[in-house]
Amino acid sequence: MITVVDYYVVASILFAIGALGFLLRKNVLVMFMSVELMLNSANLVLVASAKSFDLARGSAFALVSVAVAAAEVGVGLAIIIALFRLKATVDAEEITNLRG
């Protein structure tokens, strides 16, 4: 029997892989994709746990979080484009303007 715990485990693995990508990669775009991965795993936990309570309500929560993710991706990619115009690179280690 597949229980909610199995979904939690899958979401944990996805979240850890997202964290790994965010910490190891230097390409800002791939780091951003890893953040999307982590957001997705959080959504998965939300929906899986909603199954024991009220799936419609949990799906509504997850839907709002999808809308927030969409807005976040738009703004984040716009910032990456502006950054690329400024520095001509997407390497996170070369972007040090804010370093004192």
Partner: peptide, 21 residues
């Protein structure tokens, strides 16, 4: 740590009041 947290969760009965349609 996330997996150990997940395994410690108790699986409640899946009695959703409403579906996800």
């Amino acid at each position: 740590s996330l997996i150990s947290l997940a395994l410690n969760a108790t699986a409640r009965p899946e009695t959703s009041a409403r579906g996800g349609s």
